[in-house]
Write a protein that binds this DNA or RNA. Structure first.
Length: 361
DNA sequence: CCAGACGTTGTT
DNA sequence: GTCTGG
DNA sequence: CCAGACGTTGTT
DNA sequence: GTCTGG
């Protein structure tokens, strides 16, 4: 499934990720509705790349609400964006609400990553899933227009899902359809109405899709900011409660597994597009790879020899590259939930100790 | 013919 | 809009 | 997706 | 439990 994501991409980044020709100044529509967020959920607006017009082959970035409202929805019906925020790709060509959109209402949604909750009995642990080179994920989606009784047009979309890749099966059974290359994106966006959609509606199996656990606090939709994607250290699961008095969690904490694959993909920046009016060009020239903390220096090395298996059991899979640069979140951006947090994480909290284990309870 | 549905997820 | 059910 | 509410009356 | 809201 896909019910939560990070999208703090600027329109140019969306355009570039989706393969729009003139990505430097893409045509946009209703972008004032776009509020970049580390915690996007159904019901909020995201930039969607769709074809411009019927015959025109150009693309436009159109900000739409996540959660499909089919055009045939009754004029006076109460809108429910939380019912159809996903569409099963396996049945999308049969279901009445989606079927009619497949030929002519396909679109792309670019996000930096998405969240997935792992259920362990009563507990739910969220993980952040993303590409190890931090290029955006381009997701397959469908959109529709609906007009209310006052003549207002509502633009909404739904993200297609498929079964999880074998690598992500441990986490969930469903995942969004990730269009992993230019031809898949192009086919989905520009393919003729009768094109064989099944060919691109596959689960993404490549090993550059990685993940790590994040704070359960981000489950609250109002919790926003870079803290959402900060890697956390999972507490080891202890069968025997007594044993936790006898080991140092710092010794057995999960280490990362360095992916050895090198990617030629251009790393994308993670700056904000908070408000075009305020600082439209400030970030234009930056090509720096940025990240928003959370990857303590203590995580950086000595992990080379660790087994992949062990790392993945501990719920982390990542690439060296993401530690190449350690930078702060730009302070030009308003991030309310961050501002409230007066204390930055102490080293104590980053590197888990027996003391912190109890302090946090 | 008209009326009514049209969905996913996870959990039971 | 389009299909299913009565 | 998860979090949070889950109610009425009358008055401002 | 189930619905609504973000």
């Amino acid at each position: 499934m896909c019910g939560r994501a990070r999208c703090t991409l600027r329109p140019e980044q969306v355009a570039r990720a989706c393969g729009i020709d003139d990505a430097s100044s893409p045509p946009t529509l209703q972008m004032d509705r776009y509020h970049p967020s580390f915690n996007v959920s159904p019901g909020s607006y995201l930039p969607v790349v769709r074809k411009e017009g019927n015959a025109g082959k150009g693309a436009v970035i159109h900000c739409m609400k996540w959660g499909l409202i089919p055009s045939f929805t009754k004029k006076n019906e109460k809108l429910d964006h939380f019912r159809m925020f996903n569409a099963r790709s396996e049945s999308v060509s049969e279901k009445a609400s989606f079927r009619r959109l497949v030929p002519n209402n396909r679109c792309l949604v670019a996000v930096e990553g998405f969240y997935e909750w792992k259920k362990d009995g009563t507990k739910k642990q969220p993980y952040y899933v993303h590409f190890n080179d931090r290029r955006p994920l381009v997701l397959a989606a469908l959109y529709d227009y609906w007009e209310n009784s006052e003549g207002e047009i509502f633009c909404t979309f739904t993200i297609l899902t498929t079964c999880c890749s074998s690598a992500l099966q441990w986490l969930h059974d469903r995942m969004p359809v990730i269009l992993g290359n230019k031809s898949a994106m192009d086919a989905w966006l520009n393919g003729c109405p009768s094109f064989e959609v099944e060919s691109v509606l596959k689960s993404y199996e490549d090993p550059d899709l990685v993940w790590y656990p994040v704070t359960p606090e981000m489950g609250k939709p109002s919790f926003n900011g870079p803290e959402c994607i900060k890697e956390i250290q999972l507490k080891p699961v202890e069968k025997n409660p007594i044993s936790k008095f006898f080991f140092k969690t710092s010794e057995i904490k999960c280490e990362s597994f360095p992916e050895v694959k090198s990617s030629s993909e251009e790393a994308t920046q993670t700056n904000q597009f908070e408000d075009v009016k305020e600082e439209p060009t400030t970030h234009e020239t930056k090509e720096e790879v940025l990240d928003f903390g959370g990857h303590g220096t203590d995580n950086k090395l000595e992990v080379q020899s660790l087994l992949k298996e062990g790392a993945e059991k501990c719920g982390t899979k990542r690439n060296y590259k993401q530690f190449a640069v350690d930078s702060e979140f730009p302070d030009t951006i308003k991030m309310p939930s961050l501002e409230k947090k007066e204390n930055p994480k102490s080293k104590e909290e980053r590197q888990q100790t027996l003391l912190s284990y109890f302090q946090r309870r």
